Amino acid sequence: MTEYKLVVVGAGGVGKSALTIQLIQNHFVDEYDPTIEDSYRKQVVIDGETCLLDILDTAGQEEYSAMRDQYMRTGEGFLCVFAINNTKSFEDIHHYREQIKRVKDSEDVPMVLVGNKCDLPSRTVDTKQAQDLARSYGIPFIETSAKTRQGVDDAFYTLVREIRKHKEKMSKDGKKKKKKSKTKCVIM
Rank of each mutant, 00 (worst) to 15 (best):
V8T: 05
S39M: 06
S17K: 01
D57L: 00
C51S: 10
I21F: 08
N26I: 04
A18M: 06
I46H: 11
D47S: 08
F28D: 02
I36A: 03
S17Y: 01
Q61R: 08
H27E: 15
E31T: 07
L6R: 01
K16T: 06
L6I: 14
L52F: 12
A18R: 03
A18Y: 02
Q25V: 09
K16P: 00
I55V: 12
D57F: 00
I24D: 05
D33V: 05
V7A: 07
Q22C: 05
G10T: 00
S17G: 02
G48F: 04
F28L: 05
I55G: 03
V44R: 12
K16H: 01
D38Q: 00
D47M: 04
Q61A: 13
V8F: 03
V14M: 13
T35Y: 01
V44K: 13
I55L: 07
I46D: 09
E49A: 09
Y40G: 00
A18D: 06
I24W: 05
S17D: 00
Q25P: 03
A11D: 11
N26M: 07
T58I: 07
E63I: 03
A18S: 10
V7R: 04
V29P: 11
V29I: 13
N26P: 10
A18N: 11
Q25G: 15
A11R: 06
Q61K: 13
N26Q: 13
C51H: 13
V7G: 05
P34S: 06
N26R: 12
L23R: 15
E62T: 10
D47E: 09
E49W: 05
D33E: 11
K5M: 03
K16I: 02
T35D: 02
I21R: 06
G48P: 08
Y4V: 13
A11N: 08
Y4A: 08
G10Y: 02
V44Q: 12
V29T: 10
D33G: 04
E31H: 07
G15F: 00
V44W: 07
K16D: 00
P34V: 05
K42A: 09
I46M: 11
V45Q: 14
L23W: 11
R41F: 05
I55P: 01
V8W: 02
E62S: 10
G48I: 04
E3S: 07
G13V: 10
Y64M: 12
P34C: 05
R41L: 06
V44H: 12
Q43N: 12
E31F: 06
D57C: 01
R41M: 08
D38P: 00
E31L: 07
A11F: 14
L56F: 08
K16V: 01
Q43M: 09
K42T: 12
Q25I: 14
